[in-house]
Amino acid sequence: MQPISFKPKAFLFDLNGTMINDMDYHSKAWHHIINNDLGRELSFDEVNKEMYGKNAELLERVFGKNHFSESQIAEISMEKERRYQDAYGPYLSLIDGLDVFLKKGKEAGIKMAIGSAAIPFNIDFVLDGLNIRPYFDAIVSADDVAISKPNAETFLKGATALGVHPSECLVFEDVPKGVQSAKNAEMKSIVITSTHNEGDFNDFDNILGFIADYNNPILNLLF
């Protein structure tokens, strides 16, 4: 972990597990569809291990390449997201302190973007459901990249959209593959410990700190 003396010009946020604590709802929706709708028998823990990247990539890992047509993947994906939104919608909320942190970032003139493997349907669900779209100058979704994290493409496209050099960006992430994506983009990262503990990130040298939520006072050092 590096000392925080870094003054970023841009914040790049992952979405699920980083801005909202919703990963359990995604896992439950996938578990039900994979087992009840699609006939596989995976435990909840086994489903959790596949919870990264695009929906199409997840289906390919579980069922094999070319098992579903593109139209079938799109239909399965949307059904999964509808079930997720129906279950999580009543509890939709930002991780504690993020509302204030976004305001401080905006007031400080820091550019902000979302870089997520979520589809626009889910990103819109969060941004419009919580009325936070005005804070973000760019959005990079699953539809905008060829390869998901840990490939650097998501965050590099975010930096380009903001007009900021990658070295001047700070990534907020909750999973090792996201931190690896930031490292591959030559960006520093702060980890939100909503889905993983600190020990899961021992192999990374681009982490400035670990926070449980956005009330952590180390974030004041960024401004």
Rank of each mutant, 00 (worst) to 15 (best):
I218E: 06
H165T: 13
F201W: 08
L162Q: 08
M187H: 04
A56W: 00
L58Q: 12
I114C: 01
L12K: 08
K28A: 15
D143N: 14
F204G: 04
V47A: 06
I4M: 11
G39W: 03
K103L: 03
A161P: 01
A117F: 06
E153Q: 15
K103F: 00
I123M: 12
F44T: 03
N215I: 02
I33R: 06
V47P: 02
K49F: 01
E186Y: 10
I76Q: 02
Q85E: 12
N36F: 00
G105Q: 10
G115P: 02
I132Q: 11
Y135C: 02
A113R: 08
G209E: 07
S181C: 10
D45N: 10
P217K: 11
N151F: 08
V145Y: 01
D96C: 01
N36R: 11
F210I: 07
I114L: 14
D137A: 10
E60G: 00
G53C: 05
L15N: 04
A212E: 15
L58G: 02
E46S: 07
S77H: 08
M1S: 14
V171F: 03
T193Q: 13
D37Y: 04
I110C: 07
L59A: 05
Y52L: 06
V47E: 07
K49Q: 15
H165W: 06
D86K: 15
I34R: 05
I207E: 08
V145M: 01
L58N: 04
K157P: 07
D137G: 15
K65H: 14
N220L: 03
A142R: 14
M78G: 00
E81M: 12
L130S: 07
P8E: 06
M78S: 04
A161H: 10
Y214H: 13
E107H: 06
F11D: 06
G89K: 13
F63T: 06
E60N: 07
E70R: 15
K9M: 05
D45E: 15
E46H: 05
P90I: 11
V171E: 05
N184Y: 05
K54D: 02
R40G: 00
D22N: 09
A161T: 01
N206R: 13
S194D: 03
R83W: 02
N66M: 03
D143M: 13
V140C: 07
S5T: 14
A117C: 12
F63R: 07
I123G: 03
L208R: 13
G115W: 09
F172W: 08
V140N: 11
K177F: 03
L42S: 04
G199V: 01
S43Q: 08
F155C: 11
